[in-house]
Nucleic acid binder design. Structure first.
Lengths: 338, 338
DNA sequence: TTGAAAGCGCTAACAA
DNA sequence: TTGTTAGCGCTTTCAA
């Protein structure tokens, strides 16, 4: 591997001068600069980033610890988000360090390890919890991070979030306009912040039409298709089942659709089912899924950019970005026929 | 941050001795070793891994450039594979550097950049192509890597692969045993190695029962649900459509199911549809999907372990691992009623 | 405009 | 058993 030293020997200048020439300092004569750059090019010089990092005391790396549940982790949402983060990071010259951990003790350890080892300059956080230990910790340690999502009672950090209340109100209005009044719901673990927001949106949206969410038709699922399937079956076993089921994410909605179909119902006619996220799958299921669209890939990019700017000490135009999601009406929701 | 120097000052020993004590060398007296380890513990010493890397000339990092197609990248297969790779890497003390690139020029650049910058010690490769430039290149550069999948005409590298021929034969036998003789197929881009393997398995499996794959019912899809949907529609528009459609991956199978349902068919009764991979979704669709199971998470771990052993210069028990996948019969396949 | 020297934190060959 | 010294490749002060 070619080093500065090699070049310096070749061109007969000091290592210092070579370094400065290559970094575009202007206290090097045009002439030597040209010569050095030419030599570097010709010799195929590539700076040793590890040496740079040691010297600069920065890793130019961001960490993303994906919260996974269960062994079979497979959430299309994350694939897309990850792609957004990864591509933005590489555009900005940063590395992306990825790990997956189930929420809880091991997860915190992973954060502390990455910080303690100074493996990364900052973190991407997703799937916020009401009282998020990750965020509290990072704030306490004054370690850079950026978040997709908000938390319960503080906002002294950078985040991007979707306006889940708004999104769910769209769903509520839509279902009510179709004549639904008995509406079930499959929400995620209430500890998850987006569960709270979306649920609040649904409730207030329905309340605006004087409709209540009935307790027995309000279930908690684990965000997977399986969870949606199981909870939908439970809901539909009610002697007087709802005519519409609102799932708080697409994966659960897909599970709910399967459950309804297993029960011999035609989704969109006998029962309406809606999701949230608009993962690519949503468009090509049968029936296609009425849901709330979020630009997942772009959000990943935005959060990543925020983080890197924070790390570089650059000013953020906006510390908090709240996106208005949009309702996508497809075939899984239809007129109430009962 | 605490450094070896800080400790050496504190305990009144040289930096070298401290380093050796902490690394468990046995040319340090038990006494001083104890003392130094105690001091390090107490002071909260964490080695600076960047300094270690510079000194060792290794990055302890592996690279995984995920081949993505289209902007909306969202393949459950990759989520799960990634989790397997990531967790194994962290167990073995390695970092995982992730990037996503569409196959082609930009992708090769990404590989070369990571190599040139010596950002990683090796690569994980997936979705092999018949004549895979990535692999040829890496071999030429003698850069470590491990692969999920094989390539056309050489095997002088470590890989894990599923026996796609075997898997598809299972599918063929299954469908034939259900009375299907007109069978359609949605294959991936034939450049992809697993397309070739699976297709070969299907063809030979059918040939064993004297059945041919009809040209007009053999389509190429892009591995997404959308692709499956589109191609299934095309296949079913044949004046004499097949009674079964074999999709070469689950995502396309799910799309095909939707297409059949849009056409008013009951999948499993009017037409049988099968997939390959057994992503978690497959179990909770309606109907649930008959497919071929692969232990995706474990495979990710195996490939990762292979790579790291290669990097560390350790002997591999097996350089080539071929897994026998297993047929999972669910509801999307049923007796031929025509 | 250039170079010498120090230092980032660590490991390792060699000497004592 | 311990310490001295050199060096990984780079940036950056400071002096010339």
């Amino acid at each position: 591997m070619i080093t500065l030293k090699d070049i310096s020997i070749k061109v007969g200048k000091s290592i210092t001068t070579v370094s400065r020439a290559l970094n575009g300092y202007d206290d090097v004569s045009q002439e030597t600069k040209k010569m050095i750059q030419g030599a570097a090019e010709e010799m195929g010089y590539r700076p040793n980033i590890i040496a740079q990092r040691l010297q600069k005391q920065k890793t130019d790396t961001i960490g993303f610890i994906i919260p996974t549940f269960g062994p079979r982790f497979s959430d299309p949402f994350f694939s897309e988000f990850l792609a957004g983060v990864g591509n933005m990071a590489s555009d900005l010259g940063f590395d992306l360090l990825v790990s997956t951990q189930p929420p809880g003790e091991k997860e915190y350890k992973a954060y502390h390890k990455m910080m303690g080892d100074r493996r990364v300059d900052g973190f991407i956080i997703v799937r916020t919890r009401r009282n998020d230990e990750r965020i509290n910790d990072l704030l306490k340690q004054d370690f850079p991070f950026a978040v997709f999502g908000r938390i319960e009672d503080r906002n002294d950090f950078s985040y991007v979030d979707e306006d889940g209340v708004y999104g769910m109100r769209q769903i509520a209005d839509h279902l009510v306009s179709l004549g639904h009044t008995r509406i079930g719901c499959i929400a995620p673990d209430p500890e998850l912040m987006f569960a709270a927001t979306r649920l609040e949106g649904l409730k207030s949206g329905l309340a605006a039409h004087d409709i209540q969410l009935n307790g027995s038709m309000h279930k908690v699922g684990d965000l997977t298709q399986k969870g949606g399937y199981l909870q939908a079956k439970a809901i539909m076993s009610d002697p007087n089942p709802p005519t519409a089921i609102v799932a708080c994410n697409d994966l659960m909605a897909l599970g709910a659709i399967s459950a309804a179909q297993d029960l011999g119902l035609e989704v969109g006619r006998d029962v309406s089912i809606t999701g949230f996220d608009d993962i690519p799958l949503a468009e090509y299921t049968h029936p296609s899924l009425t849901t709330v669209h979020q630009p997942i890939y772009q959000i990943g990019g935005m959060v990543c950019e925020m983080l890197i700017k924070t790390i570089l000490g650059q000013e953020l135009e906006q510390k908090h970005i709240l996106l208005k999601p949009s309702l996508i009406i497809r075939e899984s929701s239809g007129k109430n026929n009962r």
